[in-house]
């Protein structure tokens, strides 16, 4: 009888832990890191213009980076340690500005940026671009609860938002603009954020 009761209690605890949602500890992340984030965004944009690429940290400790080197004919994906010499070698081999990209990756690592990418989107059939930066915040996670990431979207121009601060598809439309299936909220006129279970 006692054994059965302890099993029920244990199951109850497991259930309550799994039903709790993940809590983000670092709620003021953007304000604390906004200057560094701006530097990352600007330097990434400049480097992307010379030769397109994206970078993502694929491990929990943000020590392993996956770089996607985009050429006209082929996208090369390499995964390696941030401090491995072959990172610089690989970037140089494909004609990238190895040192500036390395510093960008180190900068990302220092403020827990998990991913940076440049996306195309279309307004009136014309292409525009935005930079997405994912942040791995400090979390309190319960058993089976999903991870959470801040994702910041940096647009080139001011965007439209509804009265609740949600990103809209344009000035004259009420449709929400979703990026990767996520609704974004306003930080500034051209920067908005969402919280997602995936960093890319």
């Amino acid at each position: 009888m006692k054994k059965r009761l302890s099993h029920i209690v244990l199951l109850g605890i497991l259930y309550s832990l799994s039903s709790c949602s993940t809590k983000i500890v670092s709620t003021n992340y953007y304000n604390i890191n906004k200057n560094k984030l701006l530097v990352i965004e600007q330097s990434y944009k400049a480097l992307y213009k010379t030769k397109p690429f994206s970078a993502a940290f694929t491990d929990r400790l943000l020590q392993t980076v996956s770089v996607e080197l985009i050429t006209d004919s082929l996208t090369y994906i390499y995964e390696m340690g941030v401090d491995e010499p072959r990172l610089l070698d690989t970037l140089s081999q494909y004609g990238y500005q190895a040192k500036p990209i390395y510093y960008l990756i180190k900068n990302m690592q220092s403020i827990s940026c998990a991913w940076i990418n440049n996306f195309d989107y279309y307004v009136n059939d014309h292409q525009h671009r935005l930079v997405l930066i994912s942040i791995k915040p400090k979390l309190i996670r319960y058993l089976l609860s999903p991870p959470k990431y801040y994702i910041l979207a940096y647009f080139d121009r001011a965007q439209s938002f509804d009265e609740k601060g949600r990103l809209l598809d344009g000035k004259r439309v009420k449709r929400l603009r979703q990026l990767n299936g996520q609704t974004y909220r306003k930080i500034t006129d051209r920067i908005c954020f969402t919280i997602a279970e995936k960093y890319r």
Binding site: F57, T58, D59, R60, S66, A114, E197, K198, Y199, R200
Partner: peptide, 9 residues
């Protein structure tokens, strides 16, 4: 596995 989207093991 090859295009990881979170850091869960």
């Amino acid at each position: 596995i090859i295009h990881k989207k979170n850091h869960d093991k």
